[in-house]
């Protein structure tokens, strides 16, 4: 009996809910941690980044305007669909990160559970980060968080799935849209996650994923005037990336900046830091009276 030849996947970008190749036509070879060929990933370009920002901008108001309950259901759906693709993620994480299958399984499970955690946050953010303020006068005064807008994310270099989920989920849970530059050497789980997002009722454009060299792409994202905030986490351990220069570029339109730690965190725990940085507090006053 002849052995069946495997059908391999082409890993492309994820922009505006679609899976285009890079407009540049460029690709780069992605290898496993042991050096074996895995795929030719798209080598994104400046124009791909800009297209992704455009898609993120047009998707953001609709996503922010959805009810928090609805956003929570959508994020929970992401966990459901990931669960169904568990074996594929385990294989990709094991290959990308060079870990054993049991270790990869633990990582994938944690990533799925992290979506569940953030799914539960969407309709609690305003309650935890908001406030009724007892001003000294006859006024109703309330403060509530709103999404900052379009967030650029330089995703972690090492943790190709759990780290990625940990930086993307809080940003979109809060109602932002985002443009993600994936781990340069380990981009494949991010593209597979994109396929999950595309089938999880996450509106196209809310998450956009660009693969390629971080040092080439991050400056375009950091300098883009229609990006409202940037998470530089993935600068830690990235080849040739100058995080300080990115922060300087981000100042041109006063992006909210999450600086990278010296070393990438281990992603074992999570907190509300990204919610705080990538939301804006709006305070509304109204007089009380007859």
């Amino acid at each position: 009996m002849a052995t069946r030849l495997e059908v391999k996947k082409t890993y492309k970008l994820y922009v505006g809910g679609k899976f285009p190749r890079s407009e540049s036509g460029r690709t780069y070879e992605v290898t496993s941690a042991r050096g074996a060929f895995l795929a030719n990933a798209a080598w994104g370009s400046r124009k791909d980044v800009r297209d992704a920002v455009t898609a993120a901008r047009s998707a953001q108001p609709g996503w922010a305007g959805a009810t928090a309950y609805n956003r929570g259901q959508v994020l929970y759906r992401v966990a459901e669909i990931m669960e169904g693709r568990r074996e594929q993620f385990v294989a990709e994480v094991a290959a990308s990160e060079g870990v054993t299958k049991p270790r990869a399984t633990t990582i994938v499970d944690a990533a799925i559970d992290r979506w569940v955690w953030w799914a539960g946050w969407t309709d609690k953010i305003a309650q935890v980060l908001g406030n009724l303020n007892p001003v000294a006068g006859p006024y109703f005064n309330v403060s509530a968080p709103e999404p900052t807008g379009v967030i650029g994310i330089v995703a972690p270099q090492r943790s190709s799935l759990l780290g990625l989920v940990s930086v993307v989920a809080p940003v979109i849970a809060a109602g932002n849209s985002c443009v993600v530059l994936t781990s340069e050497q380990r981009p494949l789980p991010a593209i597979t996650l994109s396929e999950v997002l595309a089938t999880s009722d996450v509106p196209g454009g809310v998450v956009n994923v660009v693969t390629g060299p971080t040092a080439e792409l991050a400056p375009w994202l950091a300098a883009h005037r229609d990006v409202d905030g940037i998470d530089l986490t993935g600068c830690a351990g990235a080849d040739g990336v100058d995080a300080t220069a990115l922060e300087v570029a981000a100042a041109d339109n006063l992006k909210r900046v999450l600086r990278p730690a010296a070393d990438e965190p281990d992603w074992g725990t999570t907190d509300l830091e990204r919610l705080r940085i990538f939301t804006e507090t709006k305070t509304v006053w109204h007089p009380k009276g007859l």
């Binding site: 406030n131 303020n133 007892p134 001003v135 000294a136 006068g137 006024y139 005064n141 403060s143 900052t148 409202d228 339109n253 006063l254 909210r256 804006e280 507090t281 709006k282 305070t283 509304v284 006053w285 109204h286 007089p287």
Partner: peptide, 30 residues
């Protein structure tokens, strides 16, 4: 960051103040 409805330029120590976008970041008060 601050919306005054049927009033304007009210300030109070309990009420957070600060901007969106190029009006800056962080809040003061509250």
């Amino acid at each position: 960051g601050v919306v005054w409805a049927n009033t304007f330029n009210r300030f109070d120590p309990t009420s957070p103040f600060g901007g969106y976008a190029e009006s800056g970041y962080g809040r003061e008060g509250g």
